[in-house]
Simulated scan of single mutants.
Amino acid sequence: MPNDTSLNLKILVLGESHATAISRAAEELSLETIKAFDVRRGSPSKKFCRDQYSSLKPEVLVLAFGGTEHNIVGLIEADPKFDFYWPPFSDYCSDRHLLPASALEELLRHRIRSGLDRALDARSAFDCPAFALAPPPPFRKVDEMTLLPSAFSGLLEAGITPAPIRRKLYAMGCALMREAYASHGIPLIEAPTAALDEDGYLHRHLWGRDPTHGNHRYGSLVLDRLSEEAINA
């Protein structure tokens, strides 16, 4: 949490769980002018409390709220198992139930709304340019050592949805985030390309405590991306 003294920052990142990787990277690199906070920590309501951040004077605000919606919709296999068409991806598994992309868009758009509202509340507390941050890319596969978020622990018997389908859901989620934030004049910064393997999945060495979050090494790549896009905007 911020201290009580006024602090001029180049970049302030406010968000939820995905802000942690950036916070750890900034601390490891001893970056005094870049701070990142999971706003739920230290807040009695587990929500953004503007009084806790009133001392911070950032040049750029980055919003990292929500971001797990594509996992909620598609991390665990559904019944019936589904696939969908989503250009530019051409893959489709013909032995699965075909869902219209528009139905999945509507479901994701509804789920993204909550994180957007929380982000806009935080954005209203600062008079500076603002950006939104895309979540970490999907993982390719898990093994017996992989730990998944506790929210999914009771569902794992159904299995993990194949990676190509999760990759399309991630792309769809980012497209909808970009659209939603753009309607409020906030550009979306994509995940760093250096974090992706040749097929668009998050490199194994960049996983955080589970494969749906990035670690401090991923956070460092995000900081490089923020410096390129946010500071130079």
Rank of each mutant, 00 (worst) to 15 (best):
T5A: 14
V13P: 10
L14P: 00
E27S: 15
F37L: 12
D38F: 07
D38A: 13
G42I: 07
S43D: 00
S43K: 02
S43V: 07
S45M: 11
K47N: 13
K47P: 06
Q52D: 15
L61Q: 12
V62R: 13
H70G: 07
V73Q: 08
P80M: 00
F84E: 00
W86P: 00
P87L: 03
P88E: 11
P88G: 10
S90K: 13
D91W: 13
D91P: 03
Y92F: 13
D95R: 13
L99V: 14
E106Q: 14
D117Q: 14
A119Q: 06
A119T: 03
L120C: 08
L120V: 05
R123N: 12
R123V: 09
C128N: 12
A132N: 06
A132C: 06
P137F: 05
K141R: 14
D143T: 01
E144K: 08
L147P: 05
P149R: 00
F152L: 04
F152M: 06
L156A: 09
G159C: 10
T161C: 04
P164T: 15
Y170A: 05
M172R: 00
R178S: 14
P187C: 13
I189S: 07
I189F: 08
L196D: 01
D197V: 05
G200F: 08
G200H: 08
Y201W: 00
D210C: 03
P211M: 05
P211L: 04
P211H: 05
R225M: 11
S227D: 13
E229F: 11
I231R: 03
A233Q: 03
